[in-house]
Design a protein around this nucleic acid. Structure first.
Lengths: 339, 339
DNA sequence: CTGTTAGCGCATTCAA
DNA sequence: TTGAATGCGCTAACAG
């Protein structure tokens, strides 16, 4: 019900200057008497300081922007959640931009950012175009990038080690005696798509596995629907005994297609997903997955940004998060030993 | 690269007053000459207006806050996404608060809101306590609530018709000849939990189905894990031939438990979920679900808020979104007729 | 059509 | 310790 109320009003009621009110409310030294009366006046008037006025004066909005490529992918939701947590704890608000993967939207957003509605930005771009890099460099506030960047582009940055992650997956499969390990990727022209393909190639080579085209498919998107098509293509052209998927959504799609074809998981084909989001556990059978450290990445990114806001000219930092494998039902050799 | 730049700088370079600069940049009438030179100066200086300064002056932040109860539940993600879309399109930014279901967090958030960092709020509370209602009423900005409210509390409000939704589910099951229709609910002390229980009771009564305690279970949370426990409890105490779940997550859990027990879906037990999120389609078998119109609700809420921001004293509006049923594999009588 | 001026609400310097 | 005064960057009267 209390309408609005300003410093002046409070000052009048307390019979002091607005400066004193400001001091008391910000915990700066003031005599007990003044403190007392200001407090009284403030609460009597239901005074609440104006965030905008303070921002204008102090030059900080206490807001952090987060731009994610693809809401709809649980991994981004998880990251968003973690960023939200860290940022809130540090006293910042989270401004969310779900610009799709459309680069022009992202660039619009960056332009808006320059109006200074946020003190910093965390971004996880799916595709990194030259325009995006340029816009990023024009940005007036600190930026932390989640994901790999083209060589030479320097930002605070945190990324996953996809190569090692896929290595974990392939190793697990090889140990289980699988010999025809296929790969369902997302679009290769995306940052994660490229990284995961490279990782697959490296891992297969490392473990002496044949690298054949028939055993690879790339979905047009990191989505379930696209995954279904890719899986259909893959399984109609080859007969793997294991398939590594670049994504949990793709893994679920692969399992669906296998089920449609009456192929049993993991007996006939083992399935491994990546990101290890909630749905890996929800799936039936639950999916063995490589955790690329999405939550840790999000946390690290948020911390990095906050640190930079506090220490603007600290050296640029690059963090790499280590992957780990969680074995579940979609793969043989589950925790509970099989006879 | 371009540092910062203010109206004054632009005015100086263009040789005009700051007022003229402001006019030109806001599209107000100005002579061609002035317009020209201001434009030139502005772009030469890389001028970008300050969002905060503008906010302070105009009294609008162009930000809308969204407070959701439970990120982690895909239905809220979907709603968030839609709100984001509508709000962005209208020129607003989205400030996200993932205050858990903890009411005190929500109240803190509301207190912060009063500092005026956003022009309005959309909130979908899981539990509505008296304190929350009180805080909501103290709020200085327009609020739109998604979900039911206690009688007498008046806000712009959009909600689902859960009762009718569950009616759809039960009807579908009855038509398919199922006779022992169980119900797995979430916590009854939540807004949706209460509504859905009431809906189940009403629907069962309406279709002349017996209403027995053995056939009902309430998960301690609207999550997969809690759902597993509830399902375990339910299936160990009774043998339904169909189960309606208050949530897609609970439905997935139910299917998992059924699968563990070697019970086939939908032949032996049919499963219906609610919310009809992505995972209903991802599940295997895919889940027949009642779409409670989450996306429509989100859209309506966003539109409602924006309308109120434009027309502060329009009458309070209450929108009810109609549910619909999508038949999938977890239920007999799928689109492709079975012999 | 254009310039001058006055705040928006607050934090902060500078005197007292 | 406290008060008066200044200005953050911008828009909107109000004059001219």
């Amino acid at each position: 019900m209390t309408k609005k109320s300003t410093l002046v009003l409070v000052a009048e009621r307390a019979g002091v200057s607005i400066a004193s009110v400001s001091r008391v409310l910000n915990g700066l030294p003031a005599s007990d008497g003044v403190t007392e009366r200001v407090r009284e006046a403030a609460s009597a008037l239901g005074y609440v300081p104006s965030a905008t006025a303070r921002s204008l004066k102090v030059g900080k909005t206490m807001q952090i922007a987060l731009a994610v490529a693809d809401v709809g992918n649980p991994v981004y939701v998880a990251m968003m959640h973690e960023v939200s947590r860290v940022v809130t704890e540090a006293g910042y608000r989270l401004v969310l931009s779900s610009t799709g993967s459309d680069p022009s939207d992202q660039i619009d957003f960056l332009a808006g950012l320059n109006r200074g509605f946020a003190d910093g930005l965390i971004m996880s771009p799916l595709r990194v175009t030259d325009e995006l890099v340029a816009a990023l460099q024009e940005t007036r506030v600190p930026v932390v990038i989640i994901g790999s960047l083209p060589a030479g582009v320097e930002f605070d940055n945190v990324r996953a080690d996809s190569a090692k992650g896929i290595g974990l997956a392939v190793k697990h499969l090889v140990k289980a005696g699988r010999e025809r390990i296929a790969f369902i990727n997302g679009p290769v022209d995306t940052v994660p798509g490229a990284a995961r393909l490279a990782g697959y190639v490296r891992a297969m080579t490392k473990y002496g596995m044949p690298l054949v085209a028939d055993m690879q498919a790339a979905a047009s998107d990191f989505t379930y629907r696209a995954g279904l098509n890719a899986a259909r293509e893959l399984f109609s052209q080859s007969t793997p005994d294991a398939v590594v998927c670049a994504n949990d959504l793709l893994a679920v799609a692969a399992m669906k297609e296998l089920s449609t074809r009456g192929i049993r998981v993991p007996e006939q084909v083992a399935v491994i997903g990546m990101d290890d989001t909630d749905i890996a556990e929800l799936a039936n059978p639950s999916i063995t997955g490589v955790d690329l450290g999405s939550v840790k990445r999000a946390r690290a990114a948020a911390k990095l940004l906050i640190r930079r806001l506090e220490t603007p000219d600290a050296p640029v930092e690059q963090v790499v998060i280590k992957p780990s494998l969680t074995v579940r039902e979609s793969t043989p050799g589950a925790p509970n030993p099989t006879p």
